[in-house]
Write a protein that binds this DNA or RNA. Structure first.
Lengths: 220, 220
DNA sequence: AATAAAAATTAGCCTAGACTAATTTTATTG
DNA sequence: CAATAAAATTAGTCTAGGCTAATTTTTATT
């Protein structure tokens, strides 16, 4: 079945909102998330329902059907595979790849995604630490925690970010916090939640609670 | 300036028709080439003229302005770079890459094209033997001739095809005529123009004049 | 339960880019 | 050079996917 760019973006949005933990994916929430008017969302939900990609009723909100879910996963898989390619092979930094991957994810060819995945060595995570579904839709799990929940004194490796905004990613670049960098909590300030962290054997640095709540780390 | 998919495809078409040697790129010719109605072509030519990408008058037909020309070259560059990537890195055969490259060529990022080109070693020709413009728009030249015009008994290397139709490309696969394969004219039949060729040190094979008129070879 | 507020929906409009059918302009040719 | 044929254009329609404004439905609050 042929899917338009716009349809694909709605599927992605519903998937993202569900995974973000929205109890009910309402018209309003989708509209805000996508920056479209509620009227447009209603139209599209009708269209997607007719195509049986989405189940929607006002009461319980929108949800992906099983075909809709596969479609969404396939788009996310492509997005993340292309991000790996852009970073690892073309030398982009992880804060610059999103917009391009946003375009590449819509290239229609499952075979291309499979071949790309093989070429990249079937990576399980993208440069932001997000899991890459395999071709059957299995999503790898990682034992990652937010830096803010990590254990004092223990060594961790940075595996991703929660907030992928350019502002945050650029701040990370400045602090030289890249994917794969070692990081360690040294001191907790009970007053404002700020903390002292050591980055990659360098000097220790004070960061805010908000900062630590947006970095995924994995024991190392 | 933002260009839509459709606009880009018209620019490509005008470029291709010009290069194909059409004296006058008329509404009718564009319509046939793209499979659109003449009415649609007129509409789009108006739009492209307003954007100063195309100069058009009924008398002399359509032509690319200098910005239109750069835009077309940039799309062609991307198309051919992606074809190289698909064949060389992902293992596609040259007869399978066109449709995917047709999508990839519209990814908007000159920087991506540059990085991809570097990654591929700045190739000068795509898998069909067509030249890849560099970032400044210079188009490499190749001393290629059609097999039908090659010298009897001399060794050549296959560098491309004129007719890139699936039918022809599949026929080539069957004959094991791939890019880079050695080929040599052994005998000419004056009656129907058919010829005996040796492919890659294998057995000799009879092919039609039409066949030989659609294969580009380069002395080797 | 009545009312107010919020959410969803409908109605109607817009643009891009197609289309067909009708018309006008240009070219050909007897 | 008038008649015809061909090419270009215009007029009007359609679909996708947006929008605003108005209305209806649902939910919350006195």
């Amino acid at each position: 079945m042929v899917r338009t760019l716009s349809e694909e973006n709605y599927l992605k949005a519903i998937y993202a909102l569900k995974r973000k933990g929205e109890e009910k994916v309402s018209v309003k929430i989708i509209a805000i998330y996508m920056g479209n008017s509620p009227a447009s969302v209603v139209d599209m939900l009708k269209k997607l329902s007719a195509k049986e990609l989405v189940n929607y009723d006002k009461k319980s909100g929108a949800d992906l059907s099983s075909t809709g879910y596969s479609a969404a996963l396939s788009i996310i898989r492509k997005h993340r595979l292309w991000e790996v390619f852009l970073c690892e092979n073309l030398g982009y930094t992880w804060d610059k790849v999103h917009d391009i991957a946003e375009q590449l994810e819509h290239i229609k060819s499952e075979d291309l995604a499979d071949k790309l995945s093989d070429y990249l060595g079937n990576p399980k995570f993208d440069p932001h630490g997000d899991p890459i579904p395999d071709k059957k839709g299995n999503i790898p799990k990682k034992d990652k925690v937010l830096l803010s929940k990590s254990q004092l004194g223990k060594s961790y490796r940075v595996v991703g970010v929660l907030d992928a905004s350019t502002l945050f990613l650029e701040y990370l670049q400045k602090l030289k916090v890249n994917l794969g960098v070692m990081i360690q909590l040294e001191e907790l300030n009970a007053f404002d939640g700020s903390m002292l962290v050591k980055i990659n054997e360098g000097e220790s640095q004070t960061v805010s609670l908000k900062f630590a709540q947006n970095i995924w780390v994995s024991p190392a």
